[in-house]
Computed example of a mutant assay.
Amino acid sequence: MATVTLENIARSFNQVKVISDITFQVPDGEFWVLVGPSGCGKSTILRSIAGLDEITEGNLYFDRTLMNTIPARERDVAMVFQNYALYPHLTVAQNLSFGLKMRGINKSVITEKVEFVSQILDINHLLHRKPKDLSGGQQQRVALGRAIIRQPKVFLLDEPLSNLDAQLRDQTRTELKKLHNKVGITTIYVTHDQVEAMTLGDRIVVLDQGKIQQIGTPAQIYDNPVNRMVATFLGTPAMNIIPVTYHDGALWINQQQSLPLTPYWKEKIPPHNGQGWDLGIRPEYINVSIESDSSDNGIIAQIEVIEPLGKEILVGATIVDSEININLQLPMKWKGERFDRFKIEFSLDHSYIFEPISGNRI
């Protein structure tokens, strides 16, 4: 196991810089997740750590050893890809032991390691099967086992659950967390799924357009996003972003409904009439009238989409006389139908305000 340190890492392809100034340190034995939209550079970072992509700028260390010029085969890194890439003509046991045989490990040691890993992953009853006889979840566990059996310094996972169905993903995600607790290998996991990031990571690195946006624990990033991108990317359903305008101590929505500022926000927001801001509020902090109300008092929204999820209902609505769309998270007992109108209330105590252009949080 090793502490992985990235210092100002950059990677360019044909003079186009796809990642830049990537700096963070994964302590020995921790589980870190790189998350962000497609094309943000997270897989490039992972491949740079593995040695599959050359680092254009910056330094990579395992503990205190500079790894920039060390070939991939000598980095003692195990990587699991989205495609499990199992050898189809070999049994599960042979797939697990292949890497050890290539290294000339003693046969008795290999047998012992195969038994240990197969028990951890609950695939010991599958050792004589071939990949074509396995389910997707079983193949995924074999791929994990083939990486773990080497006992590498660093374990790299590039969206390994994306080929699984929803139920199996949930189950495998739990198993993966338990597995890490058992083996304690320094792990860096890449995903675009914010649920995986929030549930798996000791810490999360949020990326966008090749740059780090924020690093922190799941709770820190969810409760204190540094900018609009982070705020809207993490959380299901996504945080609502509502354009507002400051005027005489209040924020105005659509120049019709006002939200009086609390003393806290009066100190934070420059008192410039006509200044525009983006108000961010998560769906769970929007209060909704129990009964429909189409009066002109307060902020009125109209239901456009209803998504029952069993324990709760997700509602997509539009603020009346505007083009502002909002998402709400409501209990199942709440009753409403498409095109119904109701009052909504925003709590500024649970709101965020972002600069419209930069997206930075005030």
Rank of each mutant, 00 (worst) to 15 (best):
K333F: 15
A166G: 02
L156Q: 05
S97G: 10
L330E: 05
G359D: 04
T5N: 11
G145H: 00
G58T: 03
P131D: 02
G136P: 02
F98L: 08
N224T: 13
F31P: 09
R146F: 03
L179T: 12
N8F: 11
G249Y: 09
N297M: 10
N327D: 11
T199C: 07
Q220G: 07
N95Y: 05
G99N: 08
L52K: 04
H350W: 13
G58N: 08
D170K: 15
M79D: 04
T44S: 12
P308G: 11
D21M: 07
V114I: 09
T217F: 04
C40N: 02
N8S: 15
K177Q: 06
V16C: 05
A250W: 02
K333Q: 14
K343R: 13
Q139I: 08
K268S: 10
N325W: 10
I22H: 00
V230R: 01
D53N: 15
Y61E: 05
N327E: 13
V244Y: 01
G310S: 10
V195F: 07
S20Y: 05
S20L: 05
N254T: 06
Q94V: 04
E74G: 10
N273Q: 10
A78R: 01
T262A: 07
N181W: 06
P270N: 09
V92T: 02
T236P: 01
D321Q: 14
I303V: 15
M229I: 13
D321G: 01
M79T: 10
G336M: 06
L144C: 02
N163V: 06
G184F: 09
D122L: 10
I313V: 15
S108T: 15
D340N: 15
R129N: 12
T69Y: 10
V154A: 09
F342H: 02
N163Q: 07
P160G: 04
V117F: 05
G41I: 04
D321Y: 10
E54H: 14
P27W: 11
P71G: 09
A317E: 00
N240D: 11
D122Y: 08
V288Y: 01
I148Q: 00
T262G: 08
D223Q: 15
F31K: 06
L86H: 03
H180Y: 03
A85S: 12
L144M: 14
I306F: 03
M79Y: 10
F81H: 07
F346T: 06
S118G: 03
T91P: 00
E345G: 09
A93M: 06
M102H: 06
Q119Y: 08
K130Q: 12
I185G: 01
T186H: 11
K113W: 08
P218N: 07
K153E: 06
R47F: 12
N227H: 10
S162N: 07
K178H: 13
T187M: 10
N68P: 11
I286E: 02
L100F: 11
K17G: 02
R64P: 01
V16S: 12
V35N: 01
T174F: 08
F98Q: 02
T23V: 11
H192T: 12
A238F: 08
I123S: 01
Q138H: 10
V33L: 09
L60H: 09
P152K: 00
V205Y: 03
I185W: 00
L127R: 02
G310Q: 09
D248E: 15
Q171T: 02
S135V: 08
I324K: 01
L348H: 05
Q255W: 01
A147V: 08
S43N: 07
S12F: 03
I49G: 00
K211F: 04
I300S: 00
D21Q: 14
H125N: 15
